[in-house]
């Protein structure tokens, strides 16, 4: 039941005007199918962040088209894009971006607040939030504030938040960038587990060993798609000791 989740056609992004014009993305066309786990790599300034912002519907292309699950989102308004993000996308950021005054559970169910259609009643949201926290092994931390959690735990809360609206695509921007290697492996293991359950994940990273855990690696250079290769030999994630709670 492979279905195209991402299709971009000659995607371009220009910043600035006139003489100071910078071509950040210079015609990227790519297909990502449902159930794929893809890494986007590239040196800084290559345009990989610009590509991720476009794929994340946080920005609109200057030229070209982006079809998200068949729906052209290239020319949508900010409000429409907000709804697309809400219904179809899940985000994992390098710096977690949890709201400091909300508990772990409240952070997880935050996206539900912004649903327009098929709103889930308030009392059911907590149950769904707890279920999402269970998937990342943090049910016992539901009432903790972000500052009471370790970096790895905060990122797991963020992953639970990304899952809460059943997105068709999860976008992770350097999800292990702020973590030590042990926590990094925990997060990668978690993403792998989501992938095994059929989630489509696109992850931007500059760490080759993290990218190697994915199925497919896209390399961006000077605003163009430089390489698109299948990653045949995915290494096994090191078995982590005392991983209580996870999985």
């Amino acid at each position: 039941m492979s279905e195209t989740i991402i299709e971009t056609i000659d995607l371009k992004k220009v910043y600035g005007m006139g003489e100071t014009e910078v071509l950040a993305l210079d015609g990227v066309s790519l297909h990502i199918e449902s159930g794929e786990f893809v890494a986007i790599m590239g040196p800084s300034g290559s345009g990989k962040s610009t590509l991720l912002n476009l794929l994340a519907c946080l920005d609109t292309p200057s030229d070209g088209h982006y079809l998200l699950a068949g729906e052209d989102v290239s020319d949508m308004s900010r409000a429409e894009l907000a709804q697309v993000r809400n219904r179809k996308l899940g985000f994992v950021f390098q710096s977690y971006n949890l709201l400091p005054r909300l508990s772990a559970l409240e952070n997880v169910i935050l996206p539900m607040m912004y649903q327009r259609e098929e709103r889930i009643p308030l009392h059911e949201r907590n149950n769904l939030g707890m279920a999402a926290l269970e998937q990342v092994g943090l049910t016992n931390r539901a009432d903790h504030l972000p500052k009471q959690l370790s970096g790895g735990q905060q990122q797991r809360v963020a992953i639970a938040r990304a899952l809460i609206n059943e997105p068709i695509l999860i976008l992770a921007d350097e999800p292990t960038g702020n973590l030590d290697s042990r926590s990094s492996f925990e997060i990668i293991e978690l993403l792998n587990h989501m992938h095994d359950r059929g989630r489509t994940i696109v992850m931007v990273t500059h760490e080759p060993d993290i990218a190697h855990y994915t199925q497919r690696i896209l390399t961006i250079r000077d605003g163009k798609l430089d390489a698109d290769r299948k990653n045949g030999q995915r290494p096994a994630v090191p078995v982590l000791q005392e991983q209580e709670g996870v999985l």
Binding site: R78, A82, Q83, R85, N86, N97, P111, Y114, R161
Partner: peptide
């Protein structure tokens, strides 16, 4: 500002 950015990312419209 970050909170606003995050809320927008997870679906808050400018009107929200």
């Amino acid at each position: 500002t970050r909170e606003i950015g995050l809320r927008q990312a997870v679906g808050a419209t400018p009107g929200d």
